[in-house]
Simulated scan of single mutants.
Amino acid sequence: MNDTGLAAQNRLSAIYSQGALYEAVYRGRGKDYATDAAAVAAVIRERCPDAVSLLDAACGTGAHLRHLVKEFTDVEGLDLAPSMLAEARARLPGVRFHRADMAHFRLDRTFSAVTCMFSSIGYLPTTTALESAVACFARHLDPGGVLVVEPWCFPERFTPHQVMSDLATVDGTTIARVSHATLIREGRACRIEAHYLVAAGGTDVRHFTDVHDLSLFHRQEYEAAFTRAGCTVEYLPSPDGRGVGLFAGIRTVG
């Protein structure tokens, strides 16, 4: 891992060192990984009907790969957080996982498709890092392979000072989460500060704070990164108008 990768590891939010808790939080919030994975698989099949292999960058606990492995015969995952990878490996023991920074990795192969889901791309701090990551994804594509990236919120759609809350009980553990979002870096990023209360039978209530800094890249900046990486690019809005949509591109031959 290079110095940039180590710096990125040091910036990991607290929740990413607690893979099991992260999994419980999003199960409680009703995150529909199966529907997301089916939509991504359809996007890939439309552009590359014969796709057989897939790399999921920033794969987290493998919740998308759990479903994508049913669509593609050869899948691998990549993430920076050891705790998240531990959950992914336990969930998918037959799948190969790599610990690496999505903006700086080099594997010994290419794939029919590369995905980066759940707005993980937003953790990249600059457009230079964005371009580095997309170029890295493209280098790991077969000629004619498909790249799918789920962006973070565009600047014009971000709501400053938004407060959100969740309460869920999963496998006997109750989790309360309250978050507050503000603009930082002169409006080029947002900071989400989340407070968690976690309680299970027979244990004390635990509190911790989790801070996420996410870049607010413009649509044109995503598109420029795809183009510079030698990929076509198309923005696919969310069908219900509430999600962030997807960027999809094909690595041009040559």
Rank of each mutant, 00 (worst) to 15 (best):
N2C: 12
N2G: 15
D3W: 13
T4K: 14
A8I: 12
L12S: 09
A14Q: 12
I15C: 03
G19C: 05
L21D: 08
L21I: 05
A24Y: 01
A24R: 14
R27D: 02
T35A: 15
T35G: 08
T35L: 13
D36V: 04
A38R: 14
A42N: 08
V43W: 11
I44Y: 06
R45H: 15
E46I: 02
R47I: 06
R47D: 05
A51Y: 09
V52E: 15
S53E: 12
L54D: 04
L55E: 02
D56N: 08
G62R: 01
A63G: 00
H64L: 07
L68T: 09
V69D: 04
D79L: 06
L85V: 10
E87R: 13
L92A: 09
P93F: 08
G94K: 09
F97H: 11
R99F: 09
M102F: 11
M102R: 01
H104Y: 11
H104E: 14
L107V: 06
T110S: 15
T110G: 00
S112E: 03
A113W: 02
C116Y: 08
F118N: 08
F118P: 07
F118R: 04
S120H: 03
S120V: 02
A129V: 02
L130W: 05
E131K: 02
E131T: 01
A133T: 01
V134R: 00
A138H: 04
A138M: 00
R139W: 08
H140Q: 05
D142H: 15
G145H: 11
L147P: 01
L147M: 14
V148R: 06
E150G: 01
P151H: 00
P151V: 00
C153E: 10
F154K: 01
P160M: 13
H161A: 14
M164I: 10
S165R: 13
D166K: 07
L167F: 06
T169R: 13
R177E: 02
L183R: 07
G201A: 15
G201Q: 13
D204H: 09
R206N: 07
H212A: 08
F217Q: 00
H218Q: 14
E221N: 12
E223F: 03
F226D: 08
G230Q: 02
C231W: 08
E234K: 05
Y235E: 05
Y235L: 05
L236P: 00
P237F: 00
P239T: 06
D240K: 01
V244P: 02
L246V: 02
T252N: 07
